[in-house]
Design a protein around this nucleic acid. Structure first.
Lengths: 328, 328
DNA sequence: ATGAAAGCGCTAACAT
DNA sequence: ATGTTAGCGCTTTCAT
């Protein structure tokens, strides 16, 4: 019940508290004393008090990972990448779900400051995200997935290219009236992927029909609603590009319910379809390397934590087209 | 860059540090001083140092949520429930992914102790999970989803009943040779759901064919492998009960690849199919109220944190059959 | 290599 | 209502 301290350990081992501290921090202590201390620590079931350590050193081996939707497998896959790198380096990861809400995001950032966490990896909730407080503390910040207005490191996908290759694959497969459903227009990934879609349409010598461009939410319900609207059009599309994995799920659900299971209507999804039970030949997927993004971001953050001072960098990750037509 | 302290705020506001502390902790301070302190705090961009607070009070408003698979939507849905309750009560949630590994789990539990977190909600990695250290500290622990050998509060699903109703629904739909694919046998939820399957089979007056009972992993690849084995049997099953959501996904994938898309072979899944694009009429689902489990566990934990001393309780949550046959 | 002692920022008696 | 002060457990100079 009572938590033992380095003083208890010191007394039992017959050394000073300083020596106990040294044993646990790897500075020079004679072999006998090391053994005595370890033994005493074990017998007392000693666990170093992190709060005291953090208070004293003004830092803790914890990094915060702030994401807008913990239920989206894209972000949990990314989280795995972050965690693997961080824990190998002796850091713990605190996963914070901002729920795409600015106030929750601010709260978590505030906690990161107050807890003296070593750094933050964040997929911002929106353009309005305020990183000033955390940046003002001098702590390193890495922005993932989404762009920010701040001068911090970043790791993003090749979003415009993803939009283009998804759309081109649909064109190649013979579809002619291709819609796009993206996330909120104020999130840059959504806008960029839509721009990629436009590129492909115009490159094919067609006009952009504004009715076919829909900004929604990055969730299943958003994909569903937009797909329903598209099907209700006087001249519905014969194919659709989904701006992220969950929108893809929603769109396919609606199509299936209307008896238009792909490839009856063409579907290309930007991001892997989570837990899909669909045949891979039916839907085009542009794979986004989410885990790799997490790994890259964690490595960048660790470099900064270790004192790297070079100007902010942004890494753009290549995506990978998995064409449905290959298998047709 | 420099972090201001209550001393800085006190000086600027012309009060003592204790008064500053009182302002931030809601004890009686005159209105003028409150205003002065708040103003000074704002001007200095003051954020209370949590490490110091934790050290002093020997507690922090943080609870740990330890789960075995952060990529399983079942657990993230649960996490949402925990988070909603906790954050409303002023607690932050630290999400820890044990990856079903005992050593990782122990490490996180150790961190929870060292960081003086207020309590732990844990879905254990296996029967071998060691909760002694955390329990020895006197901190409240709530076990979710899975049983433990410890005398702690728990929230679990009605697993055996889930196995039975899933199986019975398949029987009702006319299937006669019904297999079961579960998670690892050493995890009680897997074993119990399997027992429910057995109950239903025997209640129907049939023999248990051991070849039709498979213990695998609670992941997609586990479901896939087991389903492949079942299909390779001399006398393959005409239906299958999947022991969790991901096994269900894996099984359906394999069936689809073999041209046996449900209901060609009957499928019942214990747990909601995440992000499914399947028609709801094709597959029986036993919905497990994951979010509700999280909410319940968080409320129990908060009660304990507030000093509730009653004997340990276990809450069993009802599940909900969504029969495929209804829609046939 | 080891010990003594100061201090990180906060809260909670205790005193006024 | 407000101020003074001790101390939470640790790390880290500074001596020795």
């Amino acid at each position: 019940m009572h938590m033992s301290t380095i003083y208890d350990v010191a007394e039992l081992a017959g050394v000073s508290p300083a020596t106990v501290s040294r044993v646990f921090n790897g500075t020079s202590v004679s072999d006998e004393k090391v053994a005595a201390v370890r033994d005493a620590a074990k017998r007392l079931n000693f666990t170093p008090n992190r709060a005291a350590r953090t208070l004293r050193t003004q830092s803790s081996e914890v990094i915060a990972l702030v994401i807008p939707d913990i239920e989206n497998p894209y972000f949990t896959e990314m989280a795995r990448g972050v965690e693997d790198v961080a824990s190998k380096a002796g850091y713990s990861v605190v996963l914070c779900n901002s729920d795409a809400q600015l106030d929750k995001e601010s709260t978590y950032l505030q906690i990161a400051i107050a807890e003296h966490m070593s750094g933050v990896i964040i997929a911002t909730a929106s353009e309005g995200s305020n990183l000033d407080p955390i940046i003002a503390t001098g702590r390193p910040v890495v922005a993932v997935d989404r762009h920010t207005a701040y001068d911090v490191d970043g790791v993003v996908m090749a979003n415009r290219a993803a939009g283009t290759s998804a759309t081109k694959d649909l064109i190649r497969a013979g579809y002619r009236r291709i819609a796009y459903i993206g996330g909120p227009a104020h999130i840059d990934t959504a806008a960029e992927r839509a721009a990629g879609w436009q590129d492909a349409i115009t490159a094919d010598g067609r006009e952009i029909d504004d009715e076919l461009l829909r900004f929604s939410t990055f969730r299943v319900d958003g994909g569903r609603a937009a797909m329903e609207e598209l099907l209700a059009l006087p001249e519905p599309p014969d194919a659709v590009v989904a701006g992220n994995n969950l929108i893809g799920v929603g769109a396919i659900q609606v199509l299936t319910e209307h008896g238009l299971t792909p490839p009856a209507v063409g579907v290309a999804v930007i991001g892997s379809l989570p837990f899909t039970t669909l045949s891979p030949s039916a839907v085009t997927v542009v794979r986004l390397p989410a885990r790799h993004m997490g790994v890259t971001a964690a490595n960048m953050l660790l470099e900064r934590i270790r004192g790297d001072e070079q100007p902010a960098r942004t890494v753009v990750l290549r995506n990978e087209l998995q064409s449905a037509s290959i298998l047709r």
